[in-house]
Amino acid sequence: MADTNPTTDAVLEAASRLGRPVEPEQGALLAAYLDQLVKWNRKMNLVGKSDWRSVFDTLVVDSLFLADFLAGMNLPDRPLCLDFGAGAGLPGIPLRVLWQQGDYWLVEVREKRATFMKSVLGRLRLPATNVFAGRAEDALERLAQAGHQATADLILSRAFMPWQGLLDFIRPMLRNEPDRSGAAVILSNDPPPAESAIPTGWQLADVASYPAAGGERYFWSFRVE
């Protein structure tokens, strides 16, 4: 039963085993998210045929270490954050259990996945965490119409599009002021690129590696120059 019905204690143990312990309250929220993910996954195929432990070890693990990575970045006190291609809420929803700085928008064009995330967030009640159901290129304009700032402080991507194309795509969306430039964070299975491969106008900033799924994964952050 533990494989199909995550408990707080089981999640706490799984996080400790991965080397990134969480608090009991966080473990309860992660367990609630995983419980909903497993139930919806039987009907919608959100993450393939996976039990919650596999999802935790291969996908939620990214969120655990990403929380620490973002906490170490130089971000505004209340950044506007966009998570492109949020899918089933990974890494964003587990991330927001652990890292709750600023306003966070999970951007997803596929209606069923957006519906799932809205349902989960209605249960978890994570602060300042919302779903934008629509195209990534429309997100900021629509948010600005609703009273949010017109450019983002942080954009995250796991596999929304190849990273070089992503940087070109998001550059107009990021804040670019003399004393305050936006950042892009990419989750990758590969080490950061050589400087010669980075598009003009960008600078590779913070980089970190972490253990995941028996190997090593990476976070790369880029800043607008």
Rank of each mutant, 00 (worst) to 15 (best):
A136W: 14
A139L: 06
G147V: 09
L121P: 06
P127S: 13
R110Y: 11
P172Q: 03
M73D: 01
D138A: 15
S119R: 14
D153C: 01
E141K: 14
L106A: 10
A150E: 15
D103S: 12
L80S: 00
D62M: 06
A146F: 04
A152W: 08
L59E: 14
F169L: 12
G85M: 05
L90Q: 11
F69M: 05
D68P: 03
F169I: 02
N130L: 09
P76L: 08
A146L: 14
P94V: 12
F65H: 14
S119F: 13
M161K: 14
L166R: 11
L167R: 10
G102I: 09
D57F: 06
L154G: 01
L106I: 12
A139S: 12
R125D: 12
L59R: 14
W163C: 09
G147D: 07
V131M: 07
G89D: 10
F69P: 00
G147S: 05
A67Y: 03
L143I: 10
E137I: 08
R135H: 14
E141S: 15
A144I: 08
R171F: 03
V131G: 04
P79C: 02
A71V: 01
L64I: 04
G134T: 14
W52S: 07
A144W: 06
R135Y: 02
M161S: 07
Y104G: 00
V131E: 05
F84M: 13
L106Q: 06
F160V: 07
P91M: 02
P76S: 02
R110G: 08
A139N: 04
D153P: 02
W99A: 04
L121G: 09
D68Q: 07
L90H: 12
L166W: 08
M117K: 11
G87A: 10
P162I: 02
G85W: 07
V60G: 00
G147W: 10
A86D: 09
Q101C: 03
L66S: 06
L106V: 11
A88K: 12
L140I: 09
W105P: 03
F65G: 09
Q101S: 04
R158N: 07
L64W: 03
A159Q: 01
G87H: 11
E111F: 10
P172M: 00
I170F: 03
L167Y: 13
L82H: 04
D138W: 04
L167A: 06
Q100F: 02
A128Q: 14
L121Y: 07
A136G: 15
